[in-house]
Design a protein around this nucleic acid. Structure first.
Length: 462
RNA sequence: GCACGGGUGGCAGAGCAGCUAUGCAAUGGACUGCAGAUCCAUGGACCCGGGUGCAAAUCCCGGCCCGUGCUCCA
């Protein structure tokens, strides 16, 4: 039994083997905070939160770094139009991000470095690349020269230099004017005096898009680390650019042991994007779905597969989530054991998670336990597996206080309900269905649902 | 065009050589004044064509179709 992780670079699941035994250094590309977080972000950071939790549950000491790209063209566009500092826009959206992630039980990373706090390290890295001949200074910035390390090209996407040359077509002219080759990419962009900028040996400017991740991972982890995560779309060019920058700077390779990429979110079968008008923020989704029900939905498909968030899919997840919480609550207040085979469920759960974090298969084990048993041992099992590992449960205190609230709400109406039910049973006995249904309607209007069973009626709050 | 990932029952979605996936929906039954809930049971699938195996959704070859990427993107 060993954890196997799919690595985009080698295109296979490999047994996890880390640089230091028992320790995992994990870097995940964070957000560019130019807008409120959307469902694609939810999928990505929920996936890596799950990875984080499973690694720790498996006994690893995890050092988890996730950056904020807090200076960028889109942030500047927004701050210009609002007439505020770029940091106002960035901080507002970072706060939004952390809030919605907290609501979905995402554990905090150990470090959230920002580009604007990493400028000296970025400048050092660019300087080294220039000194080593991997980068050159053009008239509008500093560029990495792909032809100095062509063997590193295509490690994550399988593309060759020729393919990208052919495929880029008309877009070539739009990219930096100082490039010698369109496949080269910017390390440092010289900017207009009116824009926020930092001094550098190449003039005032700001970092290119890819360099911050290389600089931050080098700063926090050193020359090599174990897991690098991010969205599927970042494989090229962003992550391939990181390989160039990091490995050419330090000379150590591979910079990353396992490249992990999560699949995309579709909405009703279409890729979620602003141009299609089906772009949804996490906050909007909270209007219709409990944060943890949303988490349930997003974890119920293996992280590498695309996921289509249709109303039916989200509705199913909400049903399962409610059942899970109910079973947990009932089990919490039980003082007898279920006598069911929980160790078999544990084994299958572990095997599923060890197989490249197959949360779908793991959740099925949770569903089976939820469906089949109630007991104090079930409460403990659910708390560990559905709660601590998958992060799908509110805390036991929250569940208990939720139950207590329901109890007190029940107690408030209990007397009235019981007397109405007595009256209704009398009506039913004399086959006065009109009167019986009238009383049931009255109870419904009080928010009480009546269910007739073999041993007489039972009721609960809607 | 090139690269990568896919095509599984009504729907969603695992499995990736042999053993009921699962959930929702459906059907039959129990219960039932009606409703609801619950319980039991049942049917139903692996894109097409070849190949290798005792055995193929699962491996190989060839098609067809879909998604994503190819310098905004998690």
């Amino acid at each position: 039994m060993a954890l196997r992780v799919y690595d985009t670079r080698s295109r296979e699941k490999r047994k996890l083997s880390t640089l230091d035994d028992g320790k995992v250094r994990m870097y995940v590309c964070g957000i560019t905070p130019y807008s409120p977080s959307h469902l694609g972000h939810a999928r990505c950071y929920l996936a890596f939160d799950m990875v984080h939790r499973w690694l720790e549950a498996s006994g690893y000491d995890v050092d988890y770094v996730q950056n904020f790209t807090d200076i960028d063209d889109k942030i500047l566009d927004i701050s210009d139009s609002e007439g505020v500092e770029y940091s106002v826009v960035a901080n507002r959206n970072i706060d939004d991000y952390l809030e919605v992630m907290d609501a979905m039980n995402v554990l905090r990373a150990d470090h959230y470095p920002r580009v604007t706090d990493t400028i000296p390290e970025i400048i050092d890295m660019v300087s080294t690349l220039v000194d080593k001949g991997h980068a050159y200074v053009g008239d509008d910035g500093v560029y990495f020269e792909i032809d100095t390390a062509p063997e590193k090209f295509g490690q994550l996407t399988g593309q060759t230099l020729e393919m990208v040359r052919a495929g880029a077509g008309g877009r070539v002219e739009d990219t930096g004017s100082g490039k010698r080759d369109h496949r080269d990419f910017a390390l440092w962009k010289r900017v207009k005096p009116s824009e926020p900028s930092w001094d550098s040996p190449w003039g005032a400017g700001r970092p290119g898009w890819h360099i911050e991740c290389s600089a931050m991972s080098l700063k926090h982890f050193g020359e090599q680390f174990d897991i690098h995560g991010g969205g599927h779309d970042l494989r090229f060019p962003h992550h391939e650019a990181e390989i160039f920058q990091s490995e050419c700077c330090t000379g150590s390779e591979p910079v990353v042991g396992y490249w992990m990429h999560n699949g995309f979110v579709n909405v009703n079968g279409e890729k979620m994007s602003k141009s299609l008008g089906n772009f949804r923020t996490i906050r909007d989704a909270f209007e219709h779905h409990a944060p943890l029900a949303l988490r349930y939905a997003l974890l119920s498909v293996p992280y590498r597969n695309p996921i289509d968030l249709t109303p039916e899919f989200l509705g199913d997840a909400a049903i399962h989530y409610d059942r899970l919480v109910e079973a947990y609550g009932t089990s919490l207040s039980s003082d007898t054991e279920s006598n069911s085979d929980l160790s078999g469920a544990s084994d299958r759960f572990t095997a599923a998670m060890d197989d490249d974090f197959n949360t779908r298969a793991a959740i099925i084990e949770v569903q089976k336990v939820v469906a089949s048993s109630i007991g104090s041992d079930v409460a403990i099992w659910l708390e560990e597996h559905a709660g601590n590992i998958l992060g799908l449960l509110p805390s036991s205190d929250e569940v208990r206080s939720g139950l207590a609230q329901i109890d007190s709400a029940r107690a408030e109406v209990a007397e009235r309900v019981e007397s109405l039910l007595v009256e209704r049973e009398a009506a039913r006995k004399s086959s006065d269905w009109g009167r019986a249904d009238e009383i049931r309607d009255e109870l419904v209007s009080m928010g009480v649902v009546v269910e007739d069973g073999q041993d007489g009626p039972t009721w609960h709050l809607a």
